[in-house]
Design a protein around this nucleic acid. Structure first.
Length: 291
DNA sequence: CACTTGACCTGTCCGC
DNA sequence: TGCGGACAGGTCAAGT
């Protein structure tokens, strides 16, 4: 479930691997995964070179010297895996890799570079997508027009968080943290983890959260996201980085997917409830609803 | 207008 | 062992 730390990890990996590579062909098996016409691909991608790899929110951007870019959303089960011509057998450490020789049956798009290396867009559930568009037009996409601030940018202060949250002051905090127009990049894993850190019940109405707890929540969001980037993201089921390797944040998770186990702070049994339509994990003792 | 639910998909796991 | 159904969770569209 790629969220900000996972997409950031893929971005860093691709940036090291792809810059300067020249595209030689693109194949895809599922039109929704890559809807561009062959004519567009031939004109704006083939023979173009990768000049940059970026991330905004959970979206990955690969810029080409044709002034076109690939805009990529991994959604739930998307992977972007690079393979050199010499090594198409995973990262070399079988336990670190979830993917073997590619393409496999989850491969939706297969990009080949002129040196014989490949970039595979794999997506078991077909929710993800990538498409080619003019770099200058990316900021005009509806999603980018309304997406909120990057939570790890220096301008994202506790005051900014408070101001953003107030836009939906009568909603449950969990739903608001998942709203990409409020803050960019937080998903189900890191919403649960930061709310546990700040001792806030996920169903708490935003206006019922005291100011000092907003400050704590701000710290926790940044702490959790930074730690997750350090650990290479969270591999629950599908997620892998640009080399096919798993992330290890799940080993450090305090509540996410730990229902029935004990809270690392107070040893109370962790509960799983439903909030904002999602499985939501919390410690019933540390995270109480105000009343 | 604000919030919730359903759709998009496939693979896995659970109970019968 | 097979089979149906619930569940996984990012985002947009549709419904309440």
């Amino acid at each position: 479930m790629p969220e900000l730390p996972e997409v950031e990890t893929v971005k860093s990996g691709l940036k090291k691997l792809l810059i300067g590579k020249q595209l030689s062909s693109i194949e895809n098996d599922w039109p929704k995964s890559f809807p561009n016409s062959k004519a567009d691909v031939d004109k704006f991608a083939i023979k173009a070179r990768v000049v940059n790899v970026r991330r905004r929110a959970k979206v990955l951007l690969i810029d080409l010297d044709s002034k076109y870019s690939f805009v990529i959303h991994l959604k739930m089960t998307g992977q972007m895996v690079y393979r050199s011509k010499q090594n198409n057998f995973g990262a070399g450490h079988p336990n670190d890799s979830l993917v073997g020789k590619l393409p496999d049956k989850s491969t939706r798009v297969n990009i080949e570079f002129s040196d014989g290396s490949h970039l595979f867009f794999n997506d078991q559930r077909k929710f993800g997508w990538m498409r080619l568009m003019p770099t200058a037009m990316i900021k005009e996409l509806d999603f980018f027009k309304k997406v909120g601030p990057e939570p790890l940018s220096s301008s994202f202060t506790a005051a900014v968080l408070a101001e953003r949250l107030n836009r939906r002051s009568r909603s449950a905090i969990k739903a608001v943290l998942l709203d990409q127009s409020v803050i960019a990049g937080i998903g189900n894993i890191y919403a649960d983890e930061s709310l546990w850190g700040a001792k806030i019940h996920p169903l708490t109405t935003v206006c019922d959260i005291p100011k000092n707890k907003i400050k704590t929540l701000h710290n926790e969001i940044q702490f959790v996201l930074k730690l997750a980037i350090e650990k290479g993201g969270s591999t629950d089921k599908n997620y892998v980085d640009a080399e096919g390797k798993k992330g290890s944040y799940m080993d450090f998770a305090r509540v996410f997917r730990r229902e029935g186990l004990s809270c690392p702070r107070c040893a109370t049994t962790i509960l799983k409830i439903r909030a904002a339509g999602r499985g939501t994990h919390l410690c019933p003792k540390c995270q109480k609803l105000p009343r």
